[in-house]
Design a protein around this nucleic acid. Structure first.
Lengths: 131, 131
DNA sequence: AATGATATACGAAGAGTTTCGTAAAAGCAA
DNA sequence: TTGCTTTTACGAAACTCTTCGTATATCATT
């Protein structure tokens, strides 16, 4: 696959990335077991997906030992940012604020979390040009 | 398609829904022209998609005149809510607050918008159970 | 060495999505 | 009526994603 220019991960690939981000470099077996805590997936299915991810540049693998070790090749924060951008565009016509309001309204937040958000807003309102 | 139990719209279907939500009941030609403001799409491609959307229950159509008129069969708010829920789960491991923080950080908001959010937070902090 | 377990490689089937060519029907204009 | 345009209907190709069967290689155990 094209070095540089890494594509958007699919649903299944994102699930695997979540595991790699959370647990660090992992074997296919480990990832497959984690996936199977959520839903049934065959071992070779997971293997194939992870091989494709390497091909796409979403993951790297170390083939020194017989059991190959895979790791994420894209960062969680960057990926979230990219996917969020696209999601805001397609689902909220680019209005991040509408999304924020929806998210705040739908999900209940703890007082601590709300304070965190308020703090961020304060910061944005004071030094409110850059970023 | 199954009445009731309407599936999640695909990317292309969502694009079309956006147009229908924004402009109300529309002909295939109109929708196709709007789509072509963004990217090149053939007329029959748009037609086929819209027919499928009727089949899935995502859209309704009036066939009284020769030019059929389509309208969204699902509301914008409900759809956004559904898609947001799924997006939070898959991309932010269920943490709506992380998503909110990201969205606030990435996109610049006007003071008015920030105030709106603050107002919502105040409301949540006072009467903070229901909703 | 032989057996069994575990790993990767390969390829292809099946489902869903997107695209569009072609045909048929309906309306319009000369 | 005869053609030209617009519209819908139909079906299939192209593409992507997911899944898994089968083959092959590697390792450990006896």
């Amino acid at each position: 696959m094209d070095l540089n220019n890494i594509p958007k991960p699919t649903e299944s690939e994102l699930e695997i990335l979540q595991i790699l981000w959370l647990h660090g470099p992992s074997s296919v077996r480990f990832v497959n077991e984690k996936l199977n805590e959520e839903r049934e997936v065959g071992y070779t299915t997971t293997l194939k997906l992870m091989q494709i991810m390497v091909d796409k540049g979403l993951a790297l693998r170390n083939t020194e030992s017989r059991t190959h070790i895979y790791q994420a090749a894209v960062s969680e924060a960057d990926t979230q940012k990219r996917l969020l951008q696209k999601f805001v565009d397609t689902t909220f016509r680019g209005s991040a604020m509408k999304l924020v309001m929806q998210a705040l309204g739908n999900h209940q937040a703890s007082p601590e979390e709300l304070d965190e958000i308020k703090a961020l807003i304060e910061k944005m309102e004071s030094g409110g040009d850059d970023n």
